[in-house]
């Protein structure tokens, strides 16, 4: 469904994303993980059209969309959430979601209706008429998700929708995300909450210092020595092995 080919993005002398290629298969949840500063959010911005790549291409269903602005990609069916939530603070929850719903529904009444249905889906029904500025962090994360869903996307890019939530909120959120996949929405998620991303993803890419260092099924990636080193530092994998051998 989505193909990223040799994407590089430089900011001055810094190479945030370095020659990254990946594919997201339709109908699946694909995870993108990596330590802080690995370039995950930049890569997301490139896929959604907010940042132009210095080199490389982004293809959606084999159509090159690299030159298209974000709103055009939204029409094609790419929706994203923001890591730092971006609510329309002065509007109510209902109005927030309706802006997304307007992408496929011109009539105001219809968009407001859709908003209500989607709010129910992500568990925001009680807050429909509250100003978005008054929501809790968890509420805002849900609102990000609801707005993106309202555009009726085929590919959903989730940028750390679980970050900042407490364990019980995360437990509530996981079935919501899985429910979207079951409805046929393809998902690419950036996530720091390792437990959640391992539970949800069917395929994982690992980014470190702008480069792709590993990919595969969650279990494979979790055992990968390069991944452990990227997270825990040089020599960590070997120390872990020794520790395991010692216990065994």
């Amino acid at each position: 469904m989505l193909r990223v080919e040799h994407v590089t993005r430089r900011f001055g002398g810094l190479v945030a994303v370095n020659d990254v290629s990946l594919t997201v298969a339709p109908g699946r949840i694909t995870g993108l993980i990596g330590p802080n500063g690995a370039g995950k959010t930049t890569l997301f911005a490139v896929i959604a059209g907010f940042v132009a790549p210095s080199a490389g291409r982004v293809l959606l269903d084999d159509i090159d969309v690299t030159a298209e602005p974000p709103h055009r990609r939204a029409v094609r069916g790419i929706a994203r959430t923001f890591q730092v939530v971006q609510p329309f603070a002065g509007l109510t929850v209902r109005e927030n979601i309706a802006v997304g719903a307007h992408l496929r529904h011109r009539a105001r009444a219809e968009a407001l209706c859709r908003a209500e249905a989607i709010a129910a889906e992500v568990g925001l029904s009680a807050a429909l008429d509250e100003p978005a500025a008054g929501l809790t962090v968890a509420g805002r994360k849900r609102l990000e998700l609801a707005r993106a869903l309202a555009t009726e996307p085929r590919l959903l890019l989730l940028d750390e929708v679980l970050a900042g939530l407490n364990p019980s909120e995360i437990r509530d959120m996981i079935p919501v995300v899985r429910g979207l996949r079951d409805r046929g929405i393809t998902i690419l998620m950036v996530e720091h909450v390792m437990q959640a991303v391992m539970a949800l993803s069917e395929h994982i890419y690992v980014l470190a210092e702008g480069r792709l260092i590993a990919e595969g099924a969650p279990e494979t990636v979790a055992r990968d020595a390069r991944v452990i080193e990227a997270y825990l530092g040089h020599g960590a994998a070997a120390r872990l092995d020794r520790a395991r051998a010692g216990h065994g």
């Binding site: 709103h71 603070a89 555009t151």
Partner: peptide
């Protein structure tokens, strides 16, 4: 709705298909 969305947050509006 689009106009108000642009007022409140232009980036978020773009992500939702607003030009």
């Amino acid at each position: 709705a689009h106009l108000v969305a642009v007022r409140e947050n232009e980036d978020a509006a773009r992500a939702l298909g607003v030009d």
